[in-house]
């Protein structure tokens, strides 16, 4: 089985936000929930780089570790998913997540964060693949249809790569060697405890 990862090639990312709206479109994600976002560092200065960020599907995921109800699980493709049936909306996964991935619908007053929502790597949730229940709670399951996450598939500049970690690392390496520069595989060290050596 593949070890699925994301890699955002910041030297290609232009903050066009296609990944963000592709995600909204594919999963009908409501207003206020941002499973993916693009952050610009050093905005307006030479050196500025934008990076598309969502759940990185970490190795030994901190969210899963801190969850007080153990609602997380990792698929055979190394995708970190969770059960909204078990989630109690405590917010701990957000504190632990190095990438700000967990999102909570505001369903009431104080303390009433709804069930956590996050990027599923377009892989649904614990319900049966492609079932109604799965779609309602987690959105599409493209992986089960043999497709990759739509954010990466629709990326305007092929900056956001999704797929097996070794394969996308190789693509990135080849790019960097060819063009002679690369600002790094953002988040990899924190998420996967390894980086793309070039």
């Amino acid at each position: 089985m593949a070890r699925m990862k994301f890699l955002c090639d910041a030297d290609r990312c232009i903050e066009c936000n296609a990944c963000v709206t592709a995600c909204k479109n594919e999963h009908e994600v409501p207003w206020g929930i941002n499973r993916r976002r693009v952050v610009t560092l050093n905005d307006g200065k030479p050196g500025e780089r934008s990076i598309s960020m969502a759940c990185m599907h970490c190795t030994d995921a901190p969210c899963a570790a801190v969850c007080p109800v153990n609602c997380f699980y990792t698929t055979a493709d190394a995708v970190v998913l969770h059960s909204k049936d078990l989630c109690i909306g405590c917010g701990y996964c957000f504190y632990a997540c190095p990438f700000g991935a967990p999102q909570y619908p505001r369903v009431g007053n104080f303390g009433s964060r709804g069930k956590m929502d996050k990027c599923t790597y377009c892989a649904g949730g614990p319900e049966a693949d492609l079932s109604t229940a799965e779609y309602e709670k987690y959105g599409s399951n493209r992986l089960a249809e043999g497709k990759l996450p739509l954010c990466a598939e629709m990326c305007s500049t092929k900056s956001l790569l999704a797929g097996d970690g070794d394969v996308i690392a190789q693509i990135y390496k080849e790019r960097v060697v060819r063009r002679g520069y690369g600002s790094g595989a953002w988040g990899w060290k924190t998420a996967y405890r390894e980086t793309v050596a070039i």
């Binding site: 009908e28 409501p30 207003w31 619908p105 709804g114 109604t132």
Partner: peptide, 23 residues
């Protein structure tokens, strides 16, 4: 589907899902 996309609807009420209930 417009309703789902339009505002602060909770994720649980995704409207495509509502359609798929019929199935």
């Amino acid at each position: 589907s417009g309703l789902a996309a339009g505002g602060l609807a909770a994720l649980g009420s995704l409207q495509l899902g509502a359609v798929r209930k019929a199935e």
